[in-house]
Design a binder for these strands. Structure first.
Length: 472
RNA sequence: GCCCCGCUAGCUCAGUGGAUAGAGCAUCUGCCUUCUAAGCAGAGGGUCGGGGGUUCGAAUCCCUCGCGGGGCACCA
């Protein structure tokens, strides 16, 4: 695409964008494709920290972009409510309720003790039950509280979910069992050392299958003690989504520490008869603290809530989305706090607020303006530059959709805001270049440009979940 | 050992074959009696980690080496 954008073409674009409003840039790219975006699904055994925030913001923005381009999106959080970690968590709370130390590999944070106190108050007679049942009740209770808190944390970041899907529902519906039977019939499972293993299958086509395949690539589905692994649940989860719920595509957002599982899950999907290309796994790199690795056990992590408290949702979202998922973030909390007032998000929001203010001023000064706008009066370079930026927007949306890369949007927002600030500033230099002037026709033409730019700014900010204030 | 990500201005990062490689921050110089200065204009700052290759053309594609981060469980 390399064509000169003529003045006349740009002027017509301004009219079109101003009239389409917030729909400008939306396309039918998705053709109503049913897509699930699953993101942020951490074990509900502790609070979200700033690393989780990155995945949550990324998944939410991908969902927003897909919705904007006519995909039928369902946003899901997969709640691990009965895996090993959940059991350890429940056992830890149970231990604290009885004045004991958490078991080996358990959870030791202060919030565990707090949960134990809450459980004692809310589950009064739990100790009259047999130990197994009591612990299960405590686990259920503790998980429910953590999920509640996670919901609150992500809501503060302007993140929405449609479904909180519990792992236990898969087993109730018999899906992992169904998947295991299917894989067994197809010859993908084998028993060894008393456990049931899944062997790789994807390599068959490349002619290297026999060389690549080895026992160490196998993955346990059912442990030798008869307990299923998370992998067994994931097999059922694939059937749940691709077959029971009929999603054409499933997009998962994972942190880089899980990347090794990508090939395994894809080969499992293929073995189940699902087209592995329809399972899209987006890996984002880690968020590390400048002081060192985050670690729950060492008590060295920053809670997401704390960051949102101090910096605000808009700044947090913009900060995360300004980076490609492939970049590791070294997080400096102190710097984030001191620089919060000069966060680049305000540059964009300020442009929006200025436009809103100008439009309000125009309405006061000129209660009646001519219709329609005579956009041939938009001739200055700073005016046409705004229009030129507007012309780029649909392509940005398309790239962000096709590549599932929302980070392209804040960069566009910045460029559009720059054009807007220059346009506005021209009126500071010389009064006659203001939007609101004595001539109603000229005012009306420039107002048209303001509306087009403001709508597009608002649309773009919406897609990254950042608010567009009318006043700052 | 194997797998994934990164290496671009002093710092943090954009840029998936096409013009003289860009932005923010930092540094320096100007601009508020005005529709909002959380803004605008300008300056300095680059062997795009090294080396090969493909191409009319490479930060971008291929190979290789180096450095940094992450991962290779009957945890998830």
């Amino acid at each position: 695409m390399n064509f000169a954008l003529t003045t006349e073409w740009l002027q017509r674009l301004v009219v079109e964008v101003a009239s389409r409003g917030h729909g400008y840039g939306a396309t039918d790219l998705g053709h109503r494709e049913p897509v699930q975006v699953e993101f942020g699904s951490i074990n509900p055994t502790g609070p979200m920290h700033i690393g989780h925030g990155r995945g949550v913001v990324l998944g939410d923005s991908i969902s927003r972009v897909l919705e904007f381009t006519s995909h039928q999106v369902q946003r899901e959080y997969y709640v691990n409510d009965q895996n090993t970690q959940a059991r350890r968590f429940g056992a830890s709370v149970w231990a604290r309720m009885h004045g004991e130390e958490p078991p080996e590999g358990g959870y030791a944070g202060a919030y565990v003790t707090e949960l134990a106190e809450m459980a004692k108050a809310d589950l009064g007679d739990v100790d009259s039950l047999p130990r197994d049942e009591a612990e299960a009740k405590v686990r259920e209770y503790a998980i429910a509280v953590m999920v509640y808190r996670i919901r609150a944390s992500v809501a503060r970041l302007n993140v929405r979910y449609d479904e909180w899907f519990p792992e236990s529902r898969l087993w109730q519906d018999g899906l992992p069992q169904l998947a295991i039977n299917r894989l067994r019939d197809a010859g993908f499972l084998k028993e060894r050392d008393g456990a049931l293993w899944f062997g790789p299958a994807l390599e068959e086509e490349d002619g290297l299958g026999e060389q690549v395949r080895s026992e160490k690539d196998d993955r346990v589905v059912i442990r030798s003690n008869g307990e299923p692994t998370y992998f067994a649940s994931d097999l059922g989860y694939l059937l749940s989504r691709f077959e029971r719920r009929g999603f054409n595509r499933v997009i998962e957002v994972w942190a880089a520490d899980h990347h090794g599982y990508v090939a395994r899950l894809k080969s499992a999907a293929a073995a189940l008869g699902i087209n592995a290309d329809q399972l899209v796994i987006i890996i984002h790199q880690m968020v590390n603290l400048k002081e060192g690795k985050m670690s729950k056990r060492a008590g060295r992590f920053v809670e997401l809530d704390e960051l949102v408290d101090k910096v605000g949702s808009d700044a947090v979202r913009y900060f995360y989305l300004l980076r490609s998922p492939d970049t590791t973030i070294e997080f400096d909390l102190e710097l984030a706090l001191t620089q919060s007032s000069e966060n680049p998000v305000y540059y964009a929001q300020y442009a929006h607020a200025r436009l809103s203010n100008v439009e309000a001023t125009a309405n006061e000064r000129h209660p009646k303006l001519p219709e329609p706008a005579n956009v041939s009066l938009l001739i200055h370079p700073w005016e046409l530059d705004v229009a030129r930026q507007l012309a780029y927007w649909p392509e940005v949306v398309e790239d962000a959709t096709r590549l599932l890369e929302p980070h392209r949007i804040p960069y566009y927002v910045h460029d559009l805001a720059t054009a807007v600030h220059r346009f506005y500033h021209a009126g500071n230099e010389t009064g006659e270049h203001r939007v609101v002037v004595d001539d109603p026709e000229l005012t009306r033409a420039r107002l048209e440009l303001c509306r087009a730019a403001r709508h597009t700014l608002k649309t773009a900010l919406d897609l990254i979940g950042v608010t567009a204030p009318d006043r700052m």
